[in-house]
């Protein structure tokens, strides 16, 4: 009994091995339509950013120096940690362990909520230092892309709240809904990983 539980906790269900041959699409397929499309749309924004960056190296390099890399890195770890607990929570929910799943999703929510708060700690000093979207092309890109991403994060947090509510209140939580919300949240994480490299790290 405990073996099965441990196995399930590691996310490797007995049924999964059988399903492995066919392949399992986690959650609602239409959410994957959204995820792939969003990845493509942001992909275009990323490439266009690179295109304009190489035409304005000096400007971008000097503007980039004004960014707070520490907060950027911490935010990256926040989202990664949040994603971890979402993945762990999803595995627990699938194993029928609602209590564990709920706990893990609360942790995920906490990590995720740290992101917008830290972002404010980044933006407010920057805006006070007169670094606004209108300052130059780099900062326009910075605010627009991180702003779009922030909207995605906020939406993801709302979705996570609904997942938590579902896990808390219903006897038979809808696994498909949990997986769908999880898929969205991981996408938000992936987008940030690219943004972090493009805006903060690359030279």
């Amino acid at each position: 009994m405990t073996d099965v539980a441990e196995d399930s906790a590691t996310g490797v269900d007995q049924s999964d091995r059988a399903a492995g041959a066919r392949g399992h699409v986690p959650g609602d397929p239409s959410m994957w339509f959204f995820v792939i499309g969003d990845l493509l749309i942001f992909g275009v924004y990323f490439v266009v950013y690179m295109y304009f960056r190489v035409q304005n190296h000096e400007l971008f390099l000097h503007s980039q120096a004004r960014l707070n890399l520490d907060i950027g890195a911490i935010n990256t770890v926040m989202l990664l940690s949040s994603s971890l607990f979402v993945a762990l929570g999803t595995a627990a929910a699938r194993a029928g362990n609602s209590a564990d799943a709920l706990r893990r999703f609360w942790v995920a929510l906490a990590f995720g909520a740290a992101f917008p708060l830290l972002k404010m700690c980044e933006w407010i000093p920057e805006i006070s230092a007169a670094l606004t979207p209108g300052t130059n092309l780099f900062f326009m890109y910075y605010y627009v892309m991180t702003g779009m991403h922030l909207c995605h994060v906020l939406l993801g947090l709302i979705i996570m709240c609904f997942v938590i509510r579902n896990l808390k209140t219903s006897q038979q939580p809808k696994i498909s809904f949990v997986e769908t919300g999880a898929t969205y949240w991981h996408m938000v994480d992936v987008l940030w990983l690219v943004l972090f490299a493009l805006l903060y790290l690359m030279r």
Binding site: D16, D189, V190, V194, M202
Partner: peptide, 24 residues
């Protein structure tokens, strides 16, 4: 930095998003 970001993205997609068990 970009290659690392690519590896990170792939890891999240493969393991967290469970694409490693998804259809081809």
């Amino acid at each position: 930095v970009l290659l690392i970001a690519g590896v990170k993205a792939q890891l999240v997609i493969w393991h967290f998003m469970e694409v490693r068990r998804a259809p081809v």
